[in-house]
């Protein structure tokens, strides 16, 4: 009885008339995904692609007074290749932000690990407290470090008072190390959150299983915890590396002559020097470099993960 009626139903009922759009929506997974994504895609299109296109076009022009010579030329890129100042600054920027990224991730990983595995109550409170430095404005944080690292700053006067040093440590302020320290602190929140999420997601029974199969704490960390938290490490690293490479506020305030970065140069091109095409070309070179480094970084981490597990 029931079987028959179930079989008969589709034939007896005419399929309801639905319009093309809702039929598509119900049938096609891809279509549905794009429908959901479309507001974001539209926004991205306008807010990223168009400025980017303008930047690309601009980079092939040259400045003439306050206007542009719209003739296509590779002169800007050639200059970047040939004049050592650009390469030096680019190289230094990458180095500084790599160091800042490494320090931040190394500092934040234990904190995130602690909260994920050893805090059982009020985890959210801990996380919010760790992102506290992020609650003040970026500029304030930079100035705070200026106070801490300055010649008469907290560290130097403290060390002098204790008697460990006679002269203030010069390398603390107006140097690449000042920039690295400040960047690492300023961007910590960006590292803690993805690291915490990826560590928190790890099923505790996996750790027990690894222990049960004979791994001590260290071996277990490298074979299970680290590989499983790798997505967090990668996103934390990229989240810090990308913005710090192009940062210009911190190097401008704390970097001194040796701490200048490519971001300062780009800012100058669009500002005082008034060479927008050169600034655009620099920005594009910087972006491509970052993209290449990130791709290489992701590939290498996955390769390493394969090897160590």
């Amino acid at each position: 009885m029931t079987d028959q009626s179930a079989l008969a139903r589709p034939a007896a009922q005419t399929p309801p008339q639905v319009n093309w759009f809702s039929r598509k929506i119900h049938k096609s997974e891809t279509f549905r995904a794009y429908a959901v994504l479309s507001p974001a895609l539209l926004f991205l299109g306008f807010a990223i692609l168009i400025p980017f296109a303008i930047l690309v076009v601009l980079s092939f022009w040259t400045p003439v007074g306050f206007d542009f010579n719209r003739e296509f030329t590779l002169k800007n890129y050639r200059d970047i290749m040939e004049r050592p100042i650009y390469g030096t600054l680019l190289w230094r920027s990458l180095w500084i932000s790599t160091m800042a990224t490494v320090f931040t991730v190394l500092l934040c990983y234990p904190m995130a690990y602690y909260v994920a595995f050893h805090v059982h109550r009020n985890k959210m409170v801990w996380i919010v407290l760790m992102t506290l430095p992020f609650w003040t404005s970026y500029l304030l944080r930079v100035f705070a470090w200026k106070v801490v690292l300055g010649y008469e700053g907290v560290i130097n006067s403290g060390l002098i008072w204790v008697g460990w040093i006679e002269e203030p440590l010069k390398f603390l302020l107006y140097s690449p190390s000042a920039v690295i320290i400040t960047l690492a602190h300023a961007w910590a929140a960006f590292a803690i959150l993805p690291l915490y999420v990826s560590l928190e997601k790890i099923d505790k029974s996996l750790l027990e299983a690894a222990t049960d199969l004979g791994d001590g704490p260290m071996r277990r960390f490298f074979r299970i915890t680290l590989p499983l938290s790798l997505p967090g490490v990668i996103s934390a690293s990229i989240l810090i590396f990308i913005p710090t490479t192009g940062d210009y506020i911190t190097p401008a305030l704390l970097g001194g002559p040796n701490g200048m970065m490519i971001g300062n140069l780009i800012q100058m091109q669009f500002g005082p020097t008034n060479n927008w095409p050169m600034g655009a070309a620099l920005a594009i070179v910087l972006m491509l470099t970052i993209a290449a480094i990130c791709a290489a970084f992701i590939l290498i981490t996955f390769f390493v993960r394969k090897r160590i597990t």
Binding site: D203, L206, E208, A209, L213, L228
Partner: peptide, 18 residues
Amino acid sequence: PHYRPVNMVFQSYAIFPH
């Protein structure tokens, strides 16, 4: 645990996902 002469099959399987 890692020095005990025992091995355990977990109720939740605990297969390493990676």
